[in-house]
Nucleic acid binder design. Structure first.
Length: 694
DNA sequence: GAGCACTGC
């Protein structure tokens, strides 16, 4: 491990961290020159951040090491300060740019505007940001650029060595999103070609050792031609956070029902503890709605200990108004309980939380490459997640965290880190992106965590069947390159390409945009009947895809009205996103030479285009089936049409689906009826191999 | 008869 201290400075201490690894900590503040901006109060605030006393150390490490790993808890100020330190030290001189990536759009925007404010510059000039649909940068002026890691990956398609950047900081690396993992693998490759490029990997947890081992190049010797010599060995620096102390409580015996246990714990806190809001982590909408109802009923029925207690749900599917409720300050004499999914673990930060109740579970995605199905499964969280959850209690003052599992379980059974997303997902998009960047040997790629060979092979098979890869697993021309250019699931991209010859690109672009978001329907319990009736107003006999076209037309006709959406139980937010994605796709399609044409009422063409992308997901209803059982053509799996589909209970003989959700049954989502002859027509190579099926 | 969370030229 890298050992460094600045000559003449106090020698840093080596400390054992709690996982038994060695960390590098500086024991006293380093002197730091003022940056000279005329904002005294902001400058003072900056200096109060924990990261400030490491300023000189960070700059020295970045100068002398190709890769610097910074472990810093929330509140250390690393995200906003380090890019500024680098800029002040001259890393953006000569027209170069300092990049800092985030996994989420909101974080990119928030951090960029904060940094622009601190520097006293207009956002979009010296400090800018880029997220999908929004490029707030100026090619000539922007020196510090915040962006999502997905955008940086896309930028590599045009500039594989990312030559305009002098330093790239990958933030929140511990979250291990697919994009982060791919990016880190590629950046390691770039480093070999561009030794002058500096990487900073910022992570909240002590995964630093694994990360450091990954960036350890075989060539251990330093590059000595430069001064000071550049070490290829990663440096690790730990920066403390600024959270308050959180006292952890465990249950003595394992609980059997964590919803019930969470409710009792909330009541216990309300009964015994001083004021302060409570955040409860459960797994999904079902659990959450049930818990909220029970807590509020107890409070209303005048349970003597429950007065003043009120509970609110929090999950991604909530409307704007419901979300605002959660962020409004708690009235005096009241105690707010927010019952949330994982969304409150990383994406949203609630102020005023003093108590956290942690069920120890979350819903996680798992991919099975054999069946090619992604499942959502309630699974135990990792120690890292548990710490993150606990930390939510210490933002305003010292707090308490009640874990609904035993200490013994936490210490001995809970895994240190979660399984990285790349090992839990379908890899088609990831593989095509690597192929487009010229990485031909996917199996031999230098992964931070290697996906299973089965998953990689499955992805290669799917891409081969789509005609995106050839026999040598190289991108085909033009189809492969075109599909890679479109920022969507390759099956959807293939559907768009097919629409060109079928003269229905206008319709298919709309369908593609809708298929690439979660759902356009507004979801609320208790009003199912009204919602179903509203859906019937748009329902098309062909299936969900054509229904989406009807909704989109209606939305445009209403003048993109939010009222119209509300009246029709359609998610206004989703529709706005659909319009944006469609516009982006329209531009890309035109660049790819796709002629924008409408097929008017000829839905045959639309069905054929959908089939050209999703032929591998063809299903036939079981003969004499009275419960709507289908079998997939490829693997003969039992599947059913999802109750949210307009084809639910309609059960046409042949369908293709977009995806499968797996609960007690395997449900097909987004289903369209097809003519089986079109399968052999659009994918003869695929259906000839499968043997006689009709 | 039913939905963890993010994200992309």
């Amino acid at each position: 491990m890298a050992q460094f201290w600045k000559p003449g400075a106090e020698k840093p201490q080596l400390l054992d961290d709690e996982e038994g690894g060695v960390l590098f900590v500086f024991s006293s503040a380093f002197s730091s020159s003022s940056s000279g901006y005329g904002y005294a109060s902001i400058e003072k605030q900056r200096q109060r951040l924990p990261v400030y006393k490491y300023r000189t150390a960070i700059l020295y490490l970045v100068e002398t090491h190709a890769t610097t790993i910074i472990v810093g808890e929330t509140g250390s100020g690393k995200t906003t300060q380090i890019p500024q330190y680098l800029k002040e030290a001259g890393w953006a001189d000569g027209g170069l740019v300092i990049a800092c990536t985030q996994p989420r759009r909101l974080a990119v925007q928030a951090v960029a505007s904060r940094v622009a404010e601190e520097m006293g510059v207009k956002l979009g000039e010296e400090v800018g940001y880029t997220i999908r649909f929004e490029d707030v940068t100026d090619t000539d002026k922007t020196r510090i650029k915040f962006l999502t890691d997905g955008v940086l990956l896309r930028e590599m398609m045009d500039d594989p060595l990312l030559t305009k950047y002098s330093v790239i900081m990958i933030d929140e690396a511990h979250e291990r999103s697919i994009s982060t993992d791919i990016l880190l693998g590629l950046l390691k490759k770039i480093q070999k070609r561009r030794p002058e490029l500096r990487l900073i990997i910022a992570s909240a947890t002590i995964e630093a050792k694994a990360m450091s081992a990954f960036f350890q190049t075989r060539r251990r010797r330093a590059v000595e031609s430069v001064e000071p010599p550049l070490s290829m060995e990663p440096a690790i620096l730990s920066v403390e956070g600024r959270g308050f102390n959180v006292q952890i409580h465990y249950v003595e015996e394992p609980v059997s029902d964590y919803v019930q246990a969470a409710i009792s714990t909330v009541q216990l806190i309300h009964d015994k503890e001083p004021y302060g809001d409570i955040l409860v982590f459960l797994t999904g909408q079902d659990d959450i709605d049930a818990a909220v109802k029970l807590i509020n009923e107890e409070a209303r029925n005048g349970g003597k200990n429950s007065s003043g207690l009120f509970a609110l749900p929090l999950y991604s599917g909530l409307s704007r108004a419901e979300q605002e409720l959660i962020f409004s300050p708690t009235p005096r004499g009241k105690r707010k309980v927010v019952v949330s999914t994982n969304i409150a673990e990383t994406s949203l930060t609630l102020e005023g939380i003093v108590y956290v109740v942690d069920s120890g579970f979350s819903k996680q995605r798992f991919y099975n490459p054999i069946t090619d199905i992604e499942n959502l499964i309630v699974a135990p969280i990792s120690k890292a997640s548990a710490r993150q959850r606990a930390g939510r209690a210490g933002r305003v003052r010292p707090g308490k965290c009640y874990r609904l599992y035993t200490e013994e379980y936490f210490l001995n059974e809970m895994s240190a880190e979660g399984i990285p997303e790349i090992q839990r997902s379908n890899l088609v998009s990831c593989v095509i992106q690597l192929k487009a960047l010229g990485i031909d040997n996917i199996l031999g790629f230098d992964w931070l965590a290697s996906p299973s060979p089965e998953a990689m092979i499955r992805a290669l098979e799917v891409l081969y069947s789509l005609g995106v890869l050839d026999d040598d697993a190289k991108l085909t021309s033009p189809v492969g390159f075109q599909v890679a250019e479109i920022p969507l699931d390759p099956m959807i991209s293939k559907m768009i390409l097919a629409s060109n010859q079928l003269s229905c690109s206008e319709e298919v672009l709309t369908i593609a945009a809708v298929l690439s978001i979660q759902s356009i329907w507004f979801i609320e319990r208790g009003i199912q009947k009204e919602m179903d009736e509203a859906k019937l107003r748009f329902a098309a006999a062909e299936g969900d895809h054509v229904t989406f076209l009807n909704v989109y037309k209606g939305f445009l006709r209403s003048g993109k009205s939010s009222k119209w959406c509300y009246k029709n139980y359609i998610n206004y937010h989703s529709m706005k996103t659909v319009v944006e994605i469609r516009e982006q796709l329209r531009r890309i399609a035109q660049r790819l030479g796709i002629v924008l044409k409408s097929c008017d009422r000829d839905m045959q063409a639309v069905r054929k285009a959908v089939t050209a992308g999703f032929f591998a997901n063809a299903c036939r209803i079981e003969p004499y089936s009275h419960n709507g059982m289908y079998k997939t053509v490829r693997t003969s799996q039992e599947v059913y049409i999802h109750p949210s589909s307009v084809l639910f209970r309609v059960n046409p003989k042949w369908v293709v689906y977009q995806s499968i959700v797996s609960t007690d049954r395997q449900y097909m989502r987004n289903v369209i009826s097809i003519d089986p002859s079109s399968l052999t027509e659009v994918a003869p190579h695929f259906y000839r191999q499968q043997g006689p099926i009709f």
